[in-house]
Design a protein around this nucleic acid. Structure first.
Lengths: 221, 221
DNA sequence: GTCTATATCGAGATAGAC
DNA sequence: GTCTATCTCGATATAGAC
């Protein structure tokens, strides 16, 4: 049986029984890709960072692209689950029809939590943001066509805004997503230069409130 | 004198006196980079598309990266000039202090005009959007540190919103920029899938109004 | 499972004829 | 200025010893 068999390619689920090497590679790759970009990180960089031998990537994952895709898939699922959970809880609190503000909070908060300075998933988020523009064809196909997770949010917003044509709601979802994707390192750096350091990006709760305030006003306009 | 001398590297300004080859390369490169990404386009692809020989890129531009940077610089200057002109005109109409809505229009409209289906600069815009994430180190340094053009907009917004702390205005500029950057082909495709085709991205005037409505509400919140 | 050594390939850059 | 042919490098992937 090949080690790239799906049943064994679970990494984080059972790190102690699976080859330790595989997790070392996975984590080193995610970190390096997030920091330096997909094309700027070679398999050699990854194996050196992980302290394992050069052949490990191909042995455990099949190829560099397959490794990229596995990181992408795992983190995407995690993020979607966090968001869906928050949306579900908001629906429970409001008899199935949460207000706009809580829907937007469920959309934004998981991302911002991951963005927190000390958070374990901070690099995962940068990885996912990079995947949108630097990803392989396979990743971009998934990103373009798999909207099942987003649809729960657009449906909830359409229900919460019955006076708005759905077309309008979709566009505003698009704008709100743009606000999230802007939170990559490079753009936050730029904001810091523009504001001469007065924007404090490590104040995650403040940022969440700011984003929800801005987007809520846009949706209710 | 080297053909990469700045004085002769003007391309569009004097296409008939400059080497025709240089402009063929410039235009083919911009189009291919915009469509397929910087790393996915080789010098061979460019010269084949332009119908010129392989050595042209290095002869006229010095290197692939230098070619990329020249496209980036020229289009950046053009876009900034369009925006600055609109902001200036809005200021003239309002005794030096334009309202939020007109400032945002000056920020958004040039980008959306370039995005129009038949517009000559449509691919230029996709190129610039790509430069933000796929660009060379040199490009990203410029993007991160050169905020002189943006500052005119943030200053105008701070003046138009005296009741808001500047910190808040800077964050909202950040959100508004995210809304613009979301208008790349891949994200528009995704929106189309999500909305099942009811969002008409070729209605540029409608999109401008939607974006200004959303952002203005966010700034006035 | 893990390592070293290497095959193979595609890229950017350049030399030198015309 | 333009072309062909080629140099050189860095990358992924893999063969095969241990």
């Amino acid at each position: 049986m090949s080690p790239t068999d799906p049943a064994t390619a679970d990494g984080a689920e059972a790190p102690e029984v699976e080859a330790a090497t595989k997790n070392l590679v996975f984590n080193a790759a995610e970190r390096l890709f997030a920091l330096n970009g997909f094309q700027n990180v070679s398999v050699r960089d990854i194996t050196a960072e992980a302290g394992v031998n050069l052949a490990s990537v191909n042995y455990h994952f099949g190829s560099k692209d397959a490794l990229l895709f596995e990181i992408f898939r795992r983190r995407t699922v995690e993020l979607s689950r966090d968001r869906a959970k928050m949306l579900h809880e908001a629906a429970d609190r409001h008899g199935g029809n949460p207000p706009v503000r809580e829907i937007l909070t469920a959309l934004f908060a998981p991302v911002l939590r991951w963005l927190s300075p000390g958070h374990e998933r901070r690099v995962s988020l940068q990885f996912l943001i990079r995947a949108r523009s630097e990803g392989t064809q396979e990743m971009r196909d998934v990103l373009r066509t798999d909207v099942s997770h987003l649809r729960r949010f657009s449906d909830a917003l359409i229900a919460a805004l019955p006076q708005l044509p759905p077309e309008e709601v979709y566009w505003r979802v698009h704008f709100a997503l743009g606000m999230i994707h802007q939170n990559r390192f490079a753009e936050l750096d730029r904001l810091n230069v523009l504001s001469e350091g007065i924007t404090r990006e490590d104040d995650i709760d403040g940022l969440l409130k700011r984003m929800v305030d801005f987007a809520e006003a846009g949706f209710l306009a």
